[in-house]
Design a protein around this nucleic acid. Sequence first.
DNA 1: ACTACTTGCAACACGAATGTTGCAAGTATC
DNA 2: GATACTTGCAACATTCGTGTTGCAAGTAGT
Lengths: 196, 196
Amino acid sequence: MTDTAARPLRADAERTVRTILEAAERVLNRNPSASMEEIATAAGVARTTVHRRFATREALIVAMKTWASRQLATAVDEARFDSAPPLVALYQATANALEVKLSWGFSMNTALASGNESDQILSEVVAACDRLFGRLQEAGVLRADVDVVWVRRVYYALIHEVCENRAADDSDDTDTLATRVVDTLLRGVGSPNTQL
Amino acid sequence: MTDTAARPLRADAERTVRTILEAAERVLNRNPSASMEEIATAAGVARTTVHRRFATREALIVAMKTWASRQLATAVDEARFDSAPPLVALYQATANALEVKLSWGFSMNTALASGNESDQILSEVVAACDRLFGRLQEAGVLRADVDVVWVRRVYYALIHEVCENRAADDSDDTDTLATRVVDTLLRGVGSPNTQL
DNA sequence: ACTACTTGCAACACGAATGTTGCAAGTATC
DNA sequence: GATACTTGCAACATTCGTGTTGCAAGTAGT
């Protein structure tokens, strides 16, 4: 009944929670207005069990988003975002982020009423992102006349785009996709010897 | 009751239909799960009136998407997509498309079960797009090694991105936004003198 | 083995949204 | 001005999703 679990759950219950979160992501990614019933079925549990772990539908989605955000933050951290050479960090972080976004697309794309834990987590990721792009601009990798915020937005959009069509080009692995994102972000698709 | 209106509507009814479509776009853009009641209120009509013109909620959304698709197709046509010099056409079409997408964002972003009229319209737009990018590649504006489909996807993503944040940078007009899209698409955000 | 936790099942209450109908009043069109 | 269309209103049936509860059976942890 309580999503803000005060005392620790038993091991099997903990497993159930994760199963539900993953099933919910799968189901809602395909159909954002799917019912709790469908989610429960996909998770292989009864609907009442879902409600025992997540008081309301919204609580479930908040938990999903928090869970996904934590994974993204971890993925970014592991890319040594702030210490590694900026281009290396960018590439590595992109690959890591793609890994997360490919399996948690719904949660990551869903907007929530502000004030959540996920908001804080994601805003830290954004901040780290902006720092990195700042370093890249100082290093002369980015044009001096572009707005860093616009760079981040394009970056996010490219990652999103790559994830959307993962079904079509399933053959590509994360590294290939990351390369495509970074390459397109920096060089665009135009020929270098063309003006304007 | 029937969405596939066989006989023509009276002038005032026709106006009501358009009012409902526009209100629905506004309301659903802000909240995709808004009720028919909210849409009706926003349109300044009774809920029953909405149901008289659109049998079901889905019929309404289909009509919205068809309407928006037609407007987009018109906007693209007016850019003389196939006859004008490719770069000019690209710029002009972008500006026109942005105009439509800014006011019909929900309808354009909503996926429908295939087989609709809008599907056909939009696939023609996509085809025109691919033709244009093909011409641009032959002209040497696009790199020879990029996939035209990827180019189009990035192009769509950039347009989408620009539209999403229209609230923030409301000061920019369509031309400014179009320039930003085309510029970023072709050149990316990286410095030209940097390798990889 | 004992205890406490967890789950499935069945049943229920509740609210919200959808879609329908009949009728009266108003308005475009000829 | 007569006619047909359109709309608002009120009322209704129906369905669907949500959230709750009690109980019995099973399982983890000690």
